[in-house]
Every structure is written in C-alpha cells, then in structure tokens.
Amino acid sequence: MTETAVDITCNRKFRLTMFCGVILLLFSVSVAISVGAVSVPLHVVWGVLINKIAPDTALQTWSVGRESIVWEIRFPRALLASFVGAGLGIVGASLQAVTRNPLADPHLLGISSGGAFGAILALLHTGMFLGLLTVPLFAFLGALGATLLVLAVSRFASATSADRLILAGVAVSFIVMSLANILIFLGDPRATHIVVFWMLGGLGLAQWSQLLYPLSVLVICGAWLWVNAPNLNAMTIGDETATTLGIPVARFRLMIFVTGALITGVMVAFSGIIGFVGLMVPHIVRMLIGGDYMRVLPASALFGAIYLLWSDIIARTIMAPEDMPIGIVTGLIGGAFFVWLLRQRNT
C-alpha cells in the first residue's frame, strides 16, 4: 500500500509543479507584455487580450497606440520567447540523455553555431531568394549540417561513446564559428550589424505572421520526443545496456540529433543564438520532479518558456530604453549556473 501512496505523491508533485508552472507562465507573459520602454498596466494588457479573443468584452479605456504596442509588438514577442525557450529546453533535455552528459546543450554541441552560420550565409551572401523562409531554412540546414558534422567527426575519430561526442561537438562548434566569421569578414561591412543580432540573440523581430513556424516545429517535434521518452530514459544508463533493451542505439541517437537540429535551427532562425537554456532548464526541472523523461520533457518546455520570458524582461529593462541582446543575459546567468553546478557536484 505504501508504495502506491508514494507513487501518487510523486504524480501529485508533478501535477502540482506543472499547475504552478502554467500559472507562472501566464503571469510571466502578462509581465513581459506590461514592461518596456512604455509601461502598460496589467489590467490594460488583459483588457486588450480579452477584447482580441472576444471583442467588446472589456471596456476600452486605453489608446489605440497602447493597444498596438500590446498586440502587434509585445504579445508576439512574448509568444516567441515562450516557443524558443520551450524548444531549447526540450532539445537540451533530449541531447543530455543520448550523450549521457548532463552538460549537453545545443549551443555546446555546435548546433546553434551551425544555425547561425546558415542564417549569416542567407543574410549576407545569398539574399532572400526564397522569400521570408530563406533565413529559417538556411538556419535549419546549417544546424543540420553542423549536427551531421559532429556525428561524422565522432565516427572519424572513433569517438562514438557518449562523452567523446561532446568533445566532437565542441571541436565542430569552433570550426563552424570560424567559418561563420569568414562569412562575416567577406560580407558587406555595412550589413554586419544584422549579423551581430544573430550572434547575440534577440526576440525583437517577432511578428504574428511568422510565429506559426516555431510553434508547429515545437509541437510536432516535442510530441515525437515525448513518445520516445522511455527510450530516452534507457539511454541515460548507457549505450550497451540500452542495446540489450532492444533499442537501436546509433539510429536512435541520430534521430534525436536531427530532431534537435530541426528545433534549434528554426528557433535560431527567429531569435539568433541563445545559449545555456537547454543546459540549465532540464537541471532545475530534474531537481523539482525527478528524472523520468515522461515528466522532464513537458516540464522543461514549460520552465524553458518561463526562463526565456524573464531573460527577455531583464534584457529589455536593464538598459531601458535600449534592448540588450538576450543572449548576453542567458550567457551571464547560464555561466554563473554552470559554476554553481560544478560546486554542487563536488559536495
């Protein structure tokens, strides 16, 4: 009897965490819309949102200018922050399982650099010959290319074991970043300010018309990862043990890497490189609700979204009215977290 009792407590803890997370997410979105160069009171934020969903429900006490700030600029930005944060969170969690390294992160494995390389190539050299989709598509191809390069390098160096895969990722990350720098060097110097945006990350380009791409990638890939949660659990024990459980380890790892590249590539295309989200969020989630990927994945998505919303709030307020690139904020917080983690592991 006791074990079922504990089991229920375990589930209850998860549900409670997710419930609080959803409340916190709604609150964070509201705050993210409210703060900025022009401060909009929370009741106005909710009024605008309610009226957009069900017209004429709330009494309009605000100006048209305020409404367009809330609806046209800040709401899509908050949604993009949520999607990118959720996406990077689940990619980090999944990569950590298949590399069996709790420090794996799309940034550390060179996937983000590949995405930035693709985006820079499109922005500075090829032009938008495929229309608006050029940059996201190139970012994805760049991320995928970097991923395949990591896998090829690990094969070439006979370093297919999980821990050496990380080293292969770091090596590829350096190479791809250098190639991206060559592209910047060869490109039109007047256009390099656009590139700085991709390198440092920012959510300022969010538009309603483009939100569908990150959302659909997040939903489809997230669902696929979630049905594979039991296999991700098995991968954390080790390659050989996972094999004896009937999992085709090499193929499964490749599929996770490609899925990770797809999510990261699309997110990088709309937000630039935002590091350390995938490293930090799953860690905190595991401390809260344990290590089962059935729970870790949805919780990483939720808390990744909340984390990036608050990072964006900090980025927009700390040097207001200037927007600080969000990658600087996540880099500072992530780096400090890394140091704290090292200390935790020693004690």
Binding site: Q96, T236, I237, E240, T244, G246, R286, G290, G291, R345
Partner: peptide
Amino acid sequence: ARKVAAVLQEQPGAFGLSVREVVTLGRTP
C-alpha cells in the same frame, strides 16, 4: 532483448532516475 538481459559495468549518469524507474526500464523490450 526479450530473451537475453545483461548486467554490465556501465555506470548510469546522474539523471535523477529513481530505483523503480530504472527497474521499469527492463520492461522496454
């Protein structure tokens, strides 16, 4: 995998899986 199981020297990573969750992995195949 339904016929042959193995207890190997691999050390599982620090991923916070509980004893029960690890044992349940045996049902995977």
